[in-house]
Amino acid sequence: MAGRSFNRQVLAYLEATGEARVEEMAGKLSVDATTVRRALRRLSQMGLVERVWGGARLFQAVRYVGEMARNQEEQRAAKQAIAAKAAALVKPGARLAISGGTTCTLVARLLRNKPIHVYTNAVNIAVELFSYPKTKVFVLPGELNLFSYELVGPETVAYVDRLEALDLLFVGASAITAEGFYVRDEPEAEVARALKRKAKEVYVLADTSKWGRQPVARGFFAGLGEVTAWIKED
Rank of each mutant, 00 (worst) to 15 (best):
K114P: 00
N124I: 02
L169V: 02
F170S: 06
T17R: 15
K210A: 04
P133E: 09
T35E: 05
S5Y: 15
A206E: 03
Y159C: 14
D32F: 06
P133G: 10
A229H: 12
V107I: 10
L111E: 12
V49A: 14
V118A: 03
A229F: 07
A16Q: 14
A126V: 12
A165P: 01
A69R: 04
V49W: 08
V160M: 09
A39R: 05
A126Y: 07
G27V: 04
W211M: 15
A175Q: 03
L163I: 11
I98D: 11
R184D: 01
L205V: 05
L14Q: 13
K134A: 15
E150R: 12
V22H: 09
A178T: 07
N113L: 13
M68C: 03
F147I: 09
D32I: 13
G3D: 15
Y203I: 04
P115Q: 10
L43A: 01
K200W: 13
T103A: 08
E150V: 07
S131H: 14
R70I: 11
R109P: 02
E164Q: 14
A222D: 10
E186W: 15
A87P: 07
R63H: 12
T177W: 02
R213F: 03
Y159R: 15
V216P: 00
E155Y: 15
Y132S: 01
F220R: 02
W211G: 02
S5R: 14
E73R: 13
E128L: 02
A33V: 08
L151W: 04
W53H: 13
I98A: 03
T156L: 06
E190A: 14
L89E: 04
S131W: 08
Q45C: 11
Q75T: 07
K28Q: 10
F6T: 01
V90C: 05
M1V: 11
S148C: 13
K114M: 13
E24C: 07
G93Q: 06
W53E: 08
V62F: 15
L146A: 08
M46S: 05
K91L: 14
A87T: 05
C104H: 08
A122E: 00
R38H: 13
R57E: 13
H117A: 11
I98M: 12
A33E: 14
A78F: 08
T34W: 03
A20M: 04
A165Y: 02
G55L: 06
A78N: 05
Q9P: 08
A86S: 05
E128R: 11
L224S: 04
T35K: 12
A61W: 03
A222N: 07
A158H: 10
N145D: 14
A81W: 04
Q72E: 12
G55F: 00
L14K: 02
A122W: 04
R76V: 03
A165H: 03
A2M: 13
D32M: 11
N121M: 02
I231A: 07
F181H: 01
A222P: 02
G225T: 09
T228L: 06
T208M: 11
E186H: 15
L14M: 12
F130M: 10
T208R: 14
H117I: 12
K136D: 09
R63K: 14
V90F: 00
L14F: 09
A16F: 00
L168C: 00
E73I: 01
L144D: 08
F221S: 10
A88P: 09
F59Y: 10
Y132N: 07
R42S: 07
I125G: 00
V137R: 04
A206S: 11
N124M: 01
A12L: 11
L58C: 00
